[in-house]
């Protein structure tokens, strides 16, 4: 139990996927202009990450390992993630048009979110068992959501603040991101 909690906490804070591992930077910068869309993106990523963790785990240990196909890991996982995102999109469109509208174009974009592939590959590298894999996937997604929501909150304030002319817009956002990353480094001693 303690083990699982440590995995969760480490994925959320210490090894935050965005701010420590630098994965999933694209949506982190692209979808962080408003807190609302950031939350939506975070929710979609959480959903996909947990499912992708579970399915890639099964693929790895049921197909790739027994047949000595470990070198196909990347392409097989991408196949899983792409199909999964497609499937999730269909299900959401059918079951909840409102959520589908809210997520909009960000949903298919998760396909190319390297954080999802990253969590799948890290699960295997760290040799987690199935339960640990799920927790790690969930923790990574929560960490991503936490980072993107915090960042969106700061950016919303940046819009109305007095920023030096050369730094207006994207430069100040990048500076903010790096400062946040440094702040998250402070969690290194936590575990």
């Amino acid at each position: 139990m303690v083990e699982l909690f440590i995995i969760l906490l480490s994925a959320i804070l210490v090894n935050n996927f965005v701010l420590s591992r630098f994965l999933g930077i694209c949506p982190f910068l692209g979808v962080s202009k408003q807190v609302e869309t950031a939350v939506g993106m975070g929710a979609a990523v959480t959903f996909v990450m947990v499912l992708a963790s579970a399915i890639t785990y099964v693929i790895q240990y049921a197909v790739l390992e027994p047949f000595g196909l470990g070198y196909l890991q990347t392409i097989a996982f991408i196949l899983v993630i792409a199909s999964l995102v497609q499937f999730v999109e269909m299900v959401i469109q059918k079951s909840s048009p409102t959520l589908y509208q809210a997520l909009g174009v960000y949903l298919p974009l998760i396909t190319t979110n390297c954080a999802v592939l990253g969590v799948a590959i890290l699960n295997i590298q760290e040799e987690y068992n199935f339960i640990e894999t799920l927790f790690h996937g969930f923790g990574a997604a929560v960490g991503f959501t936490l980072a993107i929501v915090l960042f969106a909150g700061i950016r919303e304030r940046l819009v109305v603040s007095d920023v030096p002319k050369p730094l207006e817009g994207f430069p100040i956002a990048l500076l903010t991101a790096s400062l946040m990353s440094m702040a998250f480094l402070g969690f290194q001693g936590l575990l």
Binding site: L64, L69, L72, L79, V80, S83, M90, V91, P97
Partner: peptide, 26 residues
């Protein structure tokens, strides 16, 4: 072997998506 298994996986997911697109057709 890799061609076979990757093909199987692709077929599986492709078929699954095709089926899902019928079931969840909007």
């Amino acid at each position: 072997t890799p061609v076979f298994w990757l093909g199987i996986l692709g077929l599986l997911f492709g078929g699954g998506l095709a089926y899902a697109s019928k079931v969840f057709a909007v």
